[in-house]
Design a protein around this nucleic acid. Sequence first.
DNA 1: CATCCATGTTCGCTAATAACGAACGAGCCG
DNA 2: CGGCTCGTTCGTTATTAGCGAACATGGATG
Lengths: 256, 256
Amino acid sequence: MLGTIRRVGQLLDLFDEHHPEWGVTEVARALQVSKSSAHALLRSLATIGLLEQLPNSRYRLGWRTLALGSVLLTSSGIAGIARPAIDNLAKTSGETVNLAVLERGHVIFIERQPGAGGRFASAVPIGTPLPFHCSAVGKVLLAHRPPAEAQALLRTAAGFDRFTRNTITDKQRFQAELEQVRRQGYAFNLMEAFDNVCCVAAPVKNSLGLVVAAIGLSMPTHRFERHRDYYISALLAATRRVSAELGWEAETGGVA
Amino acid sequence: MLGTIRRVGQLLDLFDEHHPEWGVTEVARALQVSKSSAHALLRSLATIGLLEQLPNSRYRLGWRTLALGSVLLTSSGIAGIARPAIDNLAKTSGETVNLAVLERGHVIFIERQPGAGGRFASAVPIGTPLPFHCSAVGKVLLAHRPPAEAQALLRTAAGFDRFTRNTITDKQRFQAELEQVRRQGYAFNLMEAFDNVCCVAAPVKNSLGLVVAAIGLSMPTHRFERHRDYYISALLAATRRVSAELGWEAETGGVA
DNA sequence: CATCCATGTTCGCTAATAACGAACGAGCCG
DNA sequence: CGGCTCGTTCGTTATTAGCGAACATGGATG
């Protein structure tokens, strides 16, 4: 592990929606390095385009971060492979479909197809890290990590913040739910993040049987309650299709 | 400039749509460093999430790049400030509106509002680097760079590739066009990138009068020819509005 | 308008460390 | 089964990243 790059990681972690601009002194304090080191770090990252220096000589993320994300999306196997199935699922179900992966302990959506109504479209931006305890895709992704890693993630989780009356804030109960998710092969989100929004999610597996992503289907509660079984089967059909294209052969794999 | 970070920049440049996966040896050759150095670099970047190691132990961009781009979009001044004006322009004109910036010599779109028809929507992905010589926004952005920088960009330009019969491939003629763009305050793209697609673009200025972005309006040729003047005035109204919100005061500034 | 404080930036020195090359182990193809 | 290529590890050495002090700048304050 190169020290400079470890620092780059810490530095990039500083930038978020609530604090998108940082000065040299500020960064030096946050990373506990000297001002000159912080300066060298910031300036270098600005030179390669990962950061940008503002007229007031402070720094924020550079446009190159966008470009990198774009390259990933257009070249990543999963995004391209899953798109047809996702589009199809959105069209047949009429609901919003999300494709999500785990990124350093957080759920991020990497692709979305809004439903017929076009609601939820901008609910949560693509790429934004989300806590995993209040989303169906989060449950699915966490449920299929190695137990040791899942435990570590649960331990280091920033805390089970409550968003609605239904948010699961008890780790014990959450773990029990993960167990259920593993058994039944899909997860629910029953108004645990937003009032009146329910989701179903199921895992996408690659040729080794590893869960590399999750597809989620979001809708208003009343439609969920009415057509629950239909949504589940349509979703599972989609994840089966994507998994198959990734080389996963359902017949050979057991429930493990 | 920290050497390690300069290398990170070179390394990230390697990853593109045509070559999204790289192995250690390959990288070592490309960057002209030892295999062990390349390995340390790749592994470190994978640890902080900028890269990801695939099961076959090769590397590709990591999901964190998406997360970074998302933070930038949701926190950057320009994107949020310009959104209302862009949405409005798209609604009133019915055509596709793009917001673009210059990123290390390339044009990238950072935001888009598809027109009524919903065509062009996926023509060029958000964040993907584009050559500047065949887009209206590219002309605008380049025309307002300091002459020295613009010259350097023209020199290092990968070449004026031809995409349509109308693509400008002559640097002399392109420079003349930049001069005209500066004079009239907007730029055209007359089927220079795609057949049957025309664009108008105009600059967005901040409080110092610097051009920080460009707004472009894209449409089929026949509608462009019919309503050219309307599009121009609607576009200029939008850029004036956004520039004003960035603190630019048109009255005080000359043509300079 | 003058002063002061905080911040961004530069520079030389030194200790930390990143780069190298060789060696090891795994995987693939012939 | 043998040869090749690739990813990974390790110890040494030269590079360089980090530090602290000094300088420059700009905005706030009195």
